[in-house]
Design a protein around this nucleic acid. Sequence first.
DNA 1: ATTTTAGTGTCATATAGTGGTATTTTGTGG
DNA 2: CCACAAAATACCACTATATGACACTAAAAT
Lengths: 158, 158
Amino acid sequence: MAFRGQYDCTMDDKGRIKMPATLRKQFPAEEKGAFMIAKDIEECLVIYPMKEWEEQEARLMKLNQFDPTLRQFASAMMIGLTEVQFDNADRFLVQKSLTKYLGSSKDVVLLGKFNRIQIWDAAKLEQYNNSGQANIKQLAEEAAAYMDKLEGKEKSKQ
Amino acid sequence: MAFRGQYDCTMDDKGRIKMPATLRKQFPAEEKGAFMIAKDIEECLVIYPMKEWEEQEARLMKLNQFDPTLRQFASAMMIGLTEVQFDNADRFLVQKSLTKYLGSSKDVVLLGKFNRIQIWDAAKLEQYNNSGQANIKQLAEEAAAYMDKLEGKEKSKQ
DNA sequence: ATTTTAGTGTCATATAGTGGTATTTTGTGG
DNA sequence: CCACAAAATACCACTATATGACACTAAAAT
């Protein structure tokens, strides 16, 4: 499961967004159009297909609820979640309580990112992207170092 | 049984809360609208459907009642426990003796969490979430380590 | 006995959410 | 470049949900 691509969309006056056909087709058919929306770590919302969320949830459920740290982690993952469905025109509703995490405008961007889809306010994304481009060299270096470590290499040996 | 999602609600001046339709539908029909409210370990209240509470209770029952700590823990879990029902508008009453564990305001949040639903004072939840977000990296690491251990892996071998 | 407080039931109303259709835009093949 | 189909969007009508208001009962306190 990997969503890819950036799609410029608009939100109607009721807060509904039409899922672009290309992305829509990538949702597992057996899920009959239900998925989760959450606040993302970045300044946007994020969509998880049900299957992805359920896997996450199953892991969280195993955490000992009497351990403060584990408990707070589980809470952190649950806060800000909403379950939504596509209507028969492949639109979905972003609830009033969530729209405040986007922006004021009707222009949003759906951004495929691995197993999930981010929902950005168009202006915010551009701003975020600009700052990322400005630092892209540093970001890349840090990422490279991290990946090397993961793969058991020493940066110095490269 | 898995309740999911965060719902912003209001408590009326008599202490009643309307259960959001989406959550309401998830309650087992055969329980004809009766469930338990208790104090949670976190700074909030918690709703258990009858069946779920009975399981939780069974777990507590196993604690050695001659161990002072375990005994007091069991007591703490039972104090404030109340059975409530939905009225015909799907509202339920939070008794006066329990409201003090929420907050002063009318803004509450219902938070689906596995087999139960937490009732938070909106402000408290935000505060709790902020502290969680501030430490999210550490929380995630500990949780990951715990899960690895559960699955019989050693973190060092990964 | 009277007053206060807690809790319950019902109704009215605003608005959040849903569904459908018409219209415009976009993309594709001829 | 045109014709056609599919996708996206705007629009309107309707329904369900949430919530405040109010009246009433039961229980407790003075």
